[in-house]
């Protein structure tokens, strides 16, 4: 089913905002200057962080992978207290549905964009990067690339639902 990207961005806008905040946070953590930030806008891309070129591969990885961890953990924490009452204990209320939507929106935007993935990939594949480092990080970055491209086939939504609904239901359902 084709749903325009801008519509998905509007419906899941908290995820876009958290994704950009995560990029910005990891830029600061990696001591890379942030030049411009747009947390959310109604055009493509829905949000962005422009920063100076990181000098080290680790800085690239931190900035690129930051949202994967921040969005996944934040989405899971927000939705978890609503998932069990809704799916396991049958005692949900309207706030639970808001929490599930919010958690899903945030978890869905965990994957880096294709731009992020491209940037991480080129950083890891630079000739000066140690071969051992490449062997360790390349499969992970490759997976992220697949994840970024996979949004066409709803991989981001499947991941979001997996983190927010499937994981707690499998653990405690």
């Amino acid at each position: 089913m084709f749903i325009p990207g801008w519509l998905i961005s509007i419906v899941t806008f908290p995820g876009v905002i958290v994704h950009e905040i995560a990029h910005q946070f990891f830029c600061k953590l990696a001591k890379v200057a942030v030049l411009d930030v747009k947390y959310f806008q109604l055009s493509n891309p829905a949000g962005y962080v422009i920063h100076e070129m990181p000098q080290k591969t680790l800085q690239h990885l931190l900035i690129g992978l930051g949202p994967l961890f921040v969005n996944t953990i934040t989405g899971a924490i927000i939705a978890f207290p609503a998932i069990l009452p809704t799916f396991t204990f049958g005692t949900s209320d309207p706030v639970d549905f808001i929490l599930i939507w919010l958690g899903f929106s945030i978890a869905m935007h965990s994957f880096p964009s294709t731009g992020d993935a491209k940037s991480i990939w080129s950083a890891v594949m630079r000739p000066e990067v140690n071969i051992l480092y490449k062997i360790i990080t390349a499969p992970l970055v490759g997976l992220l690339y697949i994840g970024a491209l996979g949004s066409v086939i709803w991989l981001d939504a499947i991941y979001g639902a997996g983190v927010v609904i499937a994981l707690p239901t499998l653990l405690f359902g």
């Binding site: 207290p81 396991t88 929490l99 405690f172």
Partner: peptide, 23 residues
């Protein structure tokens, strides 16, 4: 988002305890 995150963090242990009790 921050208010809901706080709300969830507060309720997280309750849901977790109930989940463990169910298992």
């Amino acid at each position: 988002v921050c208010v809901l995150l706080l709300y969830s963090t507060f309720n997280f242990p309750i849901a977790f305890k109930a989940g463990l009790a169910k298992r």
